[in-house]
């Protein structure tokens, strides 16, 4: 890596003030697992990194809220979420996802905020958080604002965050009986970046789907809700036929990218099959949320 300077502020406010909206070579670093790869490959050569590791400890904390949702500081480690018995109990889809997210060492270091701010469409957590209707609080010198996860991702490795704005906190609402599931397809090795990620969340009453969220990631430029599939599910009874129809609708509508993990037609077929499988997984006992 080429040399750079490192600032280590003690407060989140100071960290925000050290960013320069006019200078893209000054960037924040938290766990650094993704940023280090970019720096080592010279994709990114910072002049200065602002470390968030020394800021107030509340930004590293993870709590189950009294309502049954999650409040996680941006600096919380993915492994902290994984080991939080209350959270993985209330959100089995998170337990299922974190278990297969990269490896133990990366989960010990990578942070919730960094995982979202990096906006890599191949990551596992963003589509799941989109299906769970999560949001982030972003903090800048001019104040703070709430951004729904669906509005955070603007494109391939792009977010809607301003250059001097940082994610401070993640909020996941209580699921009130909704069921959810995540499936990822890797085409080369189990630990490869996925060719496709599918996250779904369903509100079911007496065998009828009242509301559905269907998210496709990795095969597309950013985690994306598949509205045609959601419409196909709404009002349908929980059935293999409904799941297949949703898979078909998502496969037709998705704006799929060809790359080394598969051609667009191949990934479209993956979507067709795996949206239906994810819906079946969510409605089996394995996907049952609180």
């Amino acid at each position: 890596m080429i040399p750079f300077e490192l600032s280590e502020p003690d407060t989140f406010a100071e960290a925000v003030s050290l960013l320069d909206p006019e200078d893209p070579t000054i960037r924040p670093i938290a766990g650094g697992t993704a940023l280090m790869l970019m720096m080592k490959s010279n994709v990114f050569s910072p002049s200065r990194l602002v470390s968030l590791r020394g800021v107030e400890t509340r930004y590293s904390e993870v709590d189950l809220t009294p309502e049954g949702g999650i409040r996680a500081g941006a600096l919380a480690r993915l492994g902290t979420l994984e080991r939080h018995a209350g959270i993985v109990g209330a959100f089995p889809v998170l337990a299922d996802t974190l278990r297969i997210l990269s490896n133990v060492r990366v989960r010990n270091v990578a942070t919730v905020g960094g995982n979202l701010a990096h906006a890599d469409p191949h990551m596992d957590l963003p589509p799941v958080l989109l299906a769970l209707d999560a949001s982030v609080t972003a903090i800048s010198p001019s104040g703070q604002r709430m951004i729904p996860i669906g509005d955070l991702f603007a494109g391939y490795y792009e977010t809607s965050l301003a250059p001097d704005e940082l994610i401070g906190e993640l909020s996941v609402p209580a699921q009130n009986g909704r069921v959810s599931a995540y499936i990822k397809c890797t085409t080369r090795s189990a630990h490869d970046w996925p060719a496709l990620g599918v996250a779904v969340s369903l509100d079911i009453a007496e065998g009828t789907i009242v509301d559905a969220r269907v998210v496709v990631s990795a095969a597309v430029e950013k985690p994306t809700r598949m509205q045609d599939a959601e419409i196909a599910l709404k009002g349908a009874s929980v059935s293999e036929a409904a799941f297949r129809a949703a898979g078909e609708a998502a496969a037709v509508a998705a704006d799929v990218i060809s790359d080394v993990r598969g051609s667009a037609p191949y990934k479209r077929q993956l979507i067709r099959v795996n949206v239906a499988r994810a819906l079946a997984k969510a409605t089996s006992s394995g996907g049952m949320g609180s």
């Binding site: 697992t33 790869l37 080592k40 490896n103 060492r105 270091v109």
Partner: peptide
């Protein structure tokens, strides 16, 4: 590998396993 995938650089920091190749010495 230099990417945190192979584990040859494993060390423990404050008791937790991390990839030494992806961890800044400053930290």
């Amino acid at each position: 590998c230099g990417q945190g995938l192979c584990g040859c650089c494993t060390v423990k920091v404050d008791g937790e396993a991390v990839s030494g190749c992806l961890y800044l010495a400053s930290f």
